[in-house]
């Protein structure tokens, strides 16, 4: 066990492991790229949907069940399925990651919108604000902390799952996990897993810190 950990330490800090196209630096950049692109696409789909459902109050059933559906969907199956349908491209990976992230974004956006005090919305309407003004000037700012929590959760999940890109022969930190598996090289698998976990935890801490700074004047 000790030997395994010292080998892992050596693997993580060795200069040659960090350089080149198969180096940690390059794999890390790929991993972040997949994760950010997928989360941005998911946000472009999930945010308007969540805002619409929250604002109109229609489709709440959808918003609640979408979360459950997202959790139930087997990511491996989805990647393989889109891969078999669409051939070798990054498309299957992005489809699976976006499908994973959208429910978290929609449900949190919706939760943020429903948490806005109805009296505040009535007051805004009473002052003659139109629907879109109430949405963008009252509801959205008040719902923002929960919306950001949804985006954060989605990104963390996507970072952990982007490992799967390597299964259909792409890059990212998952490369180490799947190559290590194929080569029966436990140190490499362990190294890949540790790196993914570190990236996810670091992003989570950074984003929750950012949230605290942005919303420090809020009571809730």
């Amino acid at each position: 066990m000790y030997e395994l950990f010292s080998n892992l330490g050596a693997w993580l800090v060795s200069g040659e492991q960090w350089s080149g196209p198969d180096g940690i630096g390059h794999r890390l950049a790929e991993h972040l790229q997949y994760s950010l692109v997928a989360t941005l696409i998911a946000a472009a789909i999930g945010l308007p949907l969540g805002l619409l459902i929250g604002h109109t109050g229609k489709g709440a059933f959808l918003a609640i069940n979408l979360a459950s559906f997202g959790r139930a969907l087997p990511t491996v199956g989805l990647v393989v399925l889109v891969f078999l349908a669409g051939g070798l491209s990054m498309l299957p990976v992005y489809v699976a990651l976006v499908a994973l992230a959208v429910p978290a974004i929609v449900t949190n956006t919706y939760a943020g919108m429903t948490a806005v005090d109805p009296d505040v919305k009535d007051a805004a309407r009473g002052q003659g604000m139109r629907g879109h003004q109430v949405l963008f000037q009252v509801e959205l700012p008040l719902a923002l902390p929960l919306i950001m929590t949804g985006l954060r959760l989605a990104l963390i999940q996507v970072v952990a799952t982007a490992t799967i890109a390597a299964y259909v022969s792409f890059g990212g930190l998952g490369r180490y996990v799947f190559d290590g598996l194929a080569q029966r090289d436990l140190v490499q698998v362990l190294g890949g897993a540790v790196l993914v976990a570190v990236v996810a935890v670091a992003l989570d801490l950074a984003l929750s810190g950012l949230q605290r700074i942005l919303f420090r004047h809020r009571t809730a």
Partner: peptide, 18 residues
């Protein structure tokens, strides 16, 4: 438990192999 959650599931399974 939050940190455990961020470890990719495939990695957890593999790490348990020994």
């Amino acid at each position: 438990s939050n940190v455990l959650f961020t470890i990719p599931s495939i990695a957890i399974f593999v790490l348990l192999l020994p």
